[in-house]
Design a protein around this nucleic acid. Structure first.
Length: 907
DNA sequence: GCACCTGAAATTTTT
DNA sequence: TTTCAGGTGC
C-alpha cells in the first residue's frame, strides 16, 4: 500500500457495501477493458467515483496514475469534489478533467515536437469564422455559396475523423501549396477541392498564428502521441487507469485518443494481460468507460454511437456490466421514457426500473400559443411553490432550442418568479468580452493574427480596412505575423502619415501592455484592468450614450472579477492560464454545484440538461417541428437522435413531469400552427393526465368541421389577416432619433390595406411617423405623446423585452408600428411580494394589484406611467399594500400615485 | 474612415 | 423580430 498522507484508504466494504450487485461488480472489476452501460439515473457517477477510490485503495494504484475524463468542467469539478469527500485531498492532484482541458495540458507541456509553442491560443467558433472569412476573401471564394459556417463544419468533420489536410489536399487539390498567394480555385463548382484547399490554408494559418481550434485540441494531441514515441511512452507509462464518462458522446478522434493514451495497439505484441490483478506498470492501461447509448445526443457534433456499441469488439477482453435500476424517477416517468425510446430501431432493448413506486401521473397541457403555454407554466410553478412548498430550485423548464426561452422568461417575470437561465449568449461570446480577451491573447501570443486584427481598430482609432490591408499585405509578402509587420512599420512603403502615426500608437500601446504583463508582480486581474483602461475599451463604452453599453461596462468589470477569482483558486496564476479557462467554459458550468440552492427556477435546453435531475421538470414545446426539430424530422437517424433527446428530457424528472405544447407558435414573427409532437403519442395515454388536451383554436376548428364548414372559408388564423382581400406589403422605415438615455428606432414595418385607400393610408403613415419621432426626441410635450402610445398597451398585444410593439387599429385597417427601445440593464425576475398564483390568467380587464413592492422604489428612480409618461420619483411612503409614491412627470405635473394600482413600470 | 441605410438571413443542439 | 453585412454618401 502507498503511504500517502493525503489519501484516505477505504476498505472494500466501505466502497461497495451499500451498492447493488451490478454496481458493486462494476466497482470491483479487474480487467483491461470495462464498459458500464449506465441507464439514466442508475448511479453512474457514484459507481465511477467509487471505482476510482477502489482502484486507489484496493489495486494499490498511485493517484497520478489515474486519468478520469468527462465532457464538461462542471462534471469534472463535481467528480473531483465527490472524490475528495471519499478519499481526501489527494483528489486535487489527480487528472480529473474534460477531454479538452486534458489535451491542453498535454499540448502545453509537449506540443513543441509538433510545432506548437506552449503559449498557443485557443480559437473559439467566432475566431475560427473570422479566420475562414479572411481566407475566403483571399481566395476569392463566394461566401454566399460557401458560407464560412458550412466550410467550418466540414473542416470540423474532417478533424473529428482524423483526416489530415495533407491527405485531403493530395486527394482533391494536389497543386495547392498552403500559404501560396494569388491562387485561384480552378472550378468553384468542385466543392470537395474547395474544402480541401480552405482546410489546408486554415491549418497553415492556425500554425502561423500558433493557434488551435477546439477540434485541434483532440486531433493534434493524437498527432503528437503518434508522431513522438517518447511523449507517447511518457503518458502511457503515467496513466495506468483511464476512465471515461459519457462515452456515447465521444467522436472518432476522442476514441483514438483514448486508445493511444492507453497504448492499446502498442501493447498488442506483449504477453497476454488477462487475469492480472491490476494494470501493472507496463503494457496497456486499463480502461473503464461509462455511457448509455440511449442518451447519445451529440451526433451532430461528430459523436459516434458506434464507439459504445462496438466497445466489446474494439477492446480485447472487454467486459460489459449493465446498470438498469434507476434511483431517480418514479415508475410512471420511467414507463414513459421506456415507451418513447422503444420506438428507436436497432438498439439493444433495455428497461429501466425503480423501487420508488408509481408516483404522480405526468401532467399534460395544450396551450393556444407560446405565451399562454408559458403563462400556464408560470402559474403552475407558483402553485407548486405556494401550495406544495416545492422550492423554486427544484423545478426546471426545458426546451429544444434557446430561442424558446424568451416567452418563458417573460411569463416568469410577469409572475414575479425568480429564475435563472442557463446557456444562450454566453458571457465569453459577448462582443466586449471578446474584445478584451483579444487584447489579452495578443499580449500572450503576438503571432495571433485573428485577435490582433480584431483589436486593431477597437476601440476606434482611425485604422480602418485600408490600413489593415496595407499591414496584412506587407505581412504576407514577408511571411511574418500581422503584428510583426506593424513592428516593422517604418520599412513599409506607402503608408499615409496619419495611418502611420496611429499604427505607431497602437504598437506602443501593445508593447506597453506586454511589458506590464511580463512583470511577475502583476497578476492576471491587474493585467485585465490595465488592458481595459489603457486600450480605451472602457472609456469608449463609458462615454457612449447607448444604454446597452452600460451593461457592457458591467460585463467588463465582471471579467476582472473572474480573473481575480481565478487567482484565488489557482496557485501560480498566469495570464495564459486564465485565458485557457475562459476558452473552455461550457453552458452547464454556470449551474450551481451540488448542494447549492440557487433559490431559482432553472431554464435550459435539453442538451444542457443532460446529466442533471430535478424533482419537477417541464418539457415544453412538444410540437412537430419544434421538438422534434423541423430540420431533424425527415432523416430517420436524426429523428432517432431527437427521440433520445426526449428520453434524456423525460428522465431528468424525479417526481413530477409536465409536458406542454402550443397550438400556434411564432417563429421569426410568423405565426405557425403546430401539430402535437409525435413523442407525445409515443407516451402511453394512461400515463398522462391532460389538464387541457386541445387548444382553443383546435376545439373551434373541430366544431366547425363538424358543422360542415370548410376551414378555408374562415381564412387564416393570423390576427392581421383580412382573408381574401388584396394585401399589399409595405416597409417604411425611419431613422434613429436619440432620446435622453433611451434610444428609439421607429419603423412602420408593414400595413395591410385595400388598394383603393393606399394613398390615404400613406398620409396617415406620415402622421404616425411624425408623432412617433417626436416621442423619440423626448421633448416635454412628447412625453405626453409617449404616454398616449403607452395607453394602447391594454388593448393591443404589447410585449416587453428588447422591443415594444404597438399595433394601432384604425377602423378596419391595421398599421403596425414598432418601437425599438434599447433598454438599460435587463433585470431578471425582480423580487416582488409573495405570489398568489393568480397571475397566470391572461389579461382580464379589471384593475388589480400589480404586485409592485415599495422596497424596490427609491427617490430618484425613473419610471414610466401609462398616462403621464416618463417621470422621476421624488418621494416614497411605505404603507404596506397602500404605499404611495410621488412622481415628477415634468410638464405633466407632479402626481401622487397608489403604488399597487398605478400603471407604472420601473426603468 | 465612419455613420447611416437597406436587404436579407436566421434558429437546432455545443466542447 | 432581430441582427448582420455590404453599400453609399459625407
Amino acid at each position: 500500500m502507498q503511504q500517502d498522507p493525503d489519501l484516505i484508504a477505504r476498505t472494500a466494504n466501505e466502497l461497495v457495501g451499500d451498492l447493488n450487485p451490478q454496481q458493486a461488480e462494476a466497482v470491483q472489476y479487474r480487467g483491461p477493458a470495462l464498459l458500464i452501460g449506465a441507464g439514466a439515473g442508475s448511479g453512474k457517477t457514484r459507481v465511477l467515483t467509487r471505482r476510482i477510490a477502489y482502484i486507489l485503495s484496493q489495486f494499490g494504484a498511485w493517484p497520478s496514475q489515474i486519468l478520469a475524463i468527462t465532457f464538461t468542467n462542471k462534471a469534472a469539478a463535481e467528480m473531483r469534489e465527490r472524490l475528495a469527500a471519499l478519499i481526501g485531498p489527494v483528489a486535487e492532484r489527480m487528472w480529473v478533467s474534460t477531454f479538452h482541458s486534458a489535451c491542453v495540458r498535454i499540448l502545453r507541456r509537449d506540443g513543441k515536437s509538433i510545432g506548437l509553442d506552449s503559449g498557443f491560443s485557443i480559437y473559439d467558433t467566432a475566431d475560427c469564422e473570422r479566420l475562414v472569412k479572411l481566407i475566403a476573401a483571399d481566395l476569392n471564394i463566394d461566401v454566399k455559396r460557401y458560407t464560412p459556417r458550412a466550410i467550418l463544419s466540414r473542416i470540423s468533420d474532417y478533424k473529428n475523423n482524423l483526416e489530415s489536410w495533407q491527405d485531403k489536399l493530395r486527394e482533391q487539390a494536389p497543386d495547392y501549396r498552403p500559404g501560396q498567394r494569388g491562387y485561384q480555385i480552378g472550378n468553384p463548382g468542385n466543392a470537395e477541392a474547395l474544402y480541401a484547399v480552405v482546410y489546408a490554408e486554415y491549418q497553415h494559418r492556425l500554425a502561423a498564428a500558433n493557434a488551435v481550434d477546439f477540434d485541434d485540441l483532440i486531433g493534434r494531441t493524437v498527432e503528437l502521441l503518434r508522431r513522438d514515441p517518447a511523449v507517447a511512452d511518457y503518458y502511457r507509462h503515467k496513466f495506468r487507469y483511464i476512465l471515461v464518462d459519457e462515452y456515447q458522446d465521444t467522436n472518432h478522434a476522442q476514441y483514438v485518443l483514448i486508445r493511444e493514451l492507453a497504448g492499446v495497439d502498442a501493447a498488442k505484441g506483449m504477453p497476454a494481460l488477462a487475469n492480472m490483478p491490476y494494470a501493472g506498470r507496463e503494457g496497456q492501461a486499463w480502461i473503464t468507460v461509462v455511457g448509455d447509448s440511449d442518451q447519445s445526443i451529440y451526433a451532430f457534433r461528430g459523436a459516434d454511437i458506434r464507439n459504445i456499441q462496438d466497445f466489446e469488439q474494439d477492446f480485447p477482453n472487454a467486459k460489459t456490466i449493465m446498470l438498469e435500476q434507476n434511483y431517480r424517477s418514479t415508475q410512471t416517468i420511467l414507463d414513459a421514457a421506456n415507451a418513447v425510446i422503444a420506438h428507436n430501431e436497432g438498439r439493444k432493448p433495455k428497461k429501466l426500473w425503480t423501487a420508488l413506486g408509481k408516483g404522480e401521473p405526468i401532467v399534460g397541457y395544450a396551450a393556444d400559443n407560446a405565451q399562454q403555454e408559458a403563462a400556464w407554466i408560470a402559474g403552475e410553478i407558483a402553485r407548486l411553490h405556494g401550495e406544495e412548498n416545492i422550492a423554486y430550485s427544484d423545478m426546471a423548464i426545458m426546451y429544444r432550442a434557446n430561442a424558446q426561452s424568451r416567452s418563458l422568461e417573460e411569463a416568469l417575470i410577469n409572475a414575479g418568479l425568480p429564475y435563472q437561465l442557463v446557456g444562450g449568449t454566453r458571457f465569453y461570446e459577448r462582443r466586449e468580452i471578446k474584445d478584451a480577451i483579444a487584447y489579452l491573447q495578443g499580449i500572450v501570443n503576438p503571432a495571433d493574427d485573428v485577435n490582433m486584427r480584431r483589436i486593431l481598430n477597437v476601440p476606434k482609432r482611425g485604422l480602418g480596412a485600408r490600413a489593415e490591408a496595407i499591414v496584412a499585405g506587407y505581412a504576407e509578402t514577408n511571411t511574418i505575423p500581422f503584428y510583426a509587420a506593424i513592428e516593422r512599420l517604418d520599412s513599409i512603403e506607402g503608408v499615409p502619415t496619419r495611418t502611420a502615426n496611429q499604427l505607431r500608437a497602437f504598437r506602443d500601446l501593445m508593447d506597453g501592455l506586454r511589458k506590464f504583463a511580463a512583470d511577475p508582480a502583476n497578476r492576471p486581474s491587474d493585467i485585465v484592468a490595465e488592458v481595459l483602461s489603457k486600450s480605451g475599451l472602457l472609456d469608449e463604452l463609458k462615454k457612449s450614450e447607448d444604454p446597452q453599453d452600460a451593461s457592457r461596462v458591467e460585463n467588463l468589470s465582471q471579467l476582472q472579477s473572474v480573473a481575480a477569482e481565478f487567482e484565488q483558486n489557482t496557485p501560480d496564476a498566469t495570464l495564459a492560464g486564465f485565458l485557457e479557462t475562459t476558452a473552455l467554459v461550457a453552458d452547464s458550468d454556470q449551474l450551481p454545484g451540488e448542494g447549492e440552492d440557487s433559490g431559482k427556477v432553472t431554464l435550459m435546453t435539453l442538451h444542457t440538461a443532460k446529466g442533471l435531475e430535478y424533482p419537477v421538470v417541464f418539457l415544453t414545446g412538444m410540437e412537430q417541428g419544434t421538438f422534434p426539430h423541423s430540420r431533424a424530422m425527415e432523416d430517420a437517424s436524426e429523428l432517432s437522435e431527437e427521440r433520445r433527446l426526449a428520453y434524456v428530457g423525460i428522465t431528468r424528472a424525479k417526481r413530477r413531469l409536465y409536458v406542454t405544447r402550443a397550438a400556434v407558435r411564432a417563429q421569426w414573427g410568423q405565426a405557425n400552427e403546430m401539430m402535437p409532437s409525435q413523442f407525445l403519442d409515443e407516451i402511453p395515454d394512461g400515463l398522462i393526465d391532460w389538464k387541457r388536451r386541445e387548444a382553443g383554436v383546435e376545439r373551434m376548428r373541430a366544431n366547425w368541421s363538424n358543422g360542415g364548414f370548410d376551414d378555408d372559408e374562415f381564412g387564416g388564423w393570423g390576427d392581421d389577416d383580412f382573408g381574401g382581400t388584396d394585401i399589399r406589403r409595405f416597409d417604411v422605415r425611419f431613422g434613429v432619433a436619440r432620446g435622453i438615455g433611451i434610444r428609439f428606432r421607429v419603423r412602420i414595418v408593414w400595413f395591410d390595406v385595400r388598394r383603393l385607400v393606399i394613398r390615404l393610408l400613406l398620409r396617415f403613415v406620415r402622421i404616425v411617423l411624425r408623432f412617433v419621432v417626436r416621442v423619440g426626441r423626448a421633448s416635454v410635450r412628447c412625453r405626453r405623446r409617449l404616454a398616449l402610445a403607452w395607453r394602447f398597451r391594454d388593448r393591443l398585444p404589447v410585449r416587453f423585452g428588447r422591443s415594444l410593439r404597438i399595433r394601432l387599429v384604425i377602423r378596419q385597417f391595421v398599421v403596425r408600428v414598432e418601437l425599438v427601445v434599447a433598454q438599460r440593464t435587463r433585470h431578471h425576475a425582480p423580487c416582488r411580494a409573495e405570489n398568489t398564483g393568480s397571475s397566470s390568467a391572461a389579461g382580464t380587464g379589471a384593475p388589480r394589484d400589480n404586485g409592485l413592492n415599495i422596497a424596490d422604489f427609491h427617490v430618484g428612480d425613473r419610471i414610466t406611467h401609462d398616462m403621464y409618461g416618463l417621470g422621476t420619483i421624488v418621494d416614497t411612503l411605505d404603507k404596506g399594500a397602500k404605499s404611495v409614491i410621488t412622481v415628477d412627470f415634468g410638464s405633466a405635473g407632479t402626481k401622487r400615485l397608489m403604488l399597487s394600482r398605478a400603471p407604472i413600470e420601473k426603468l
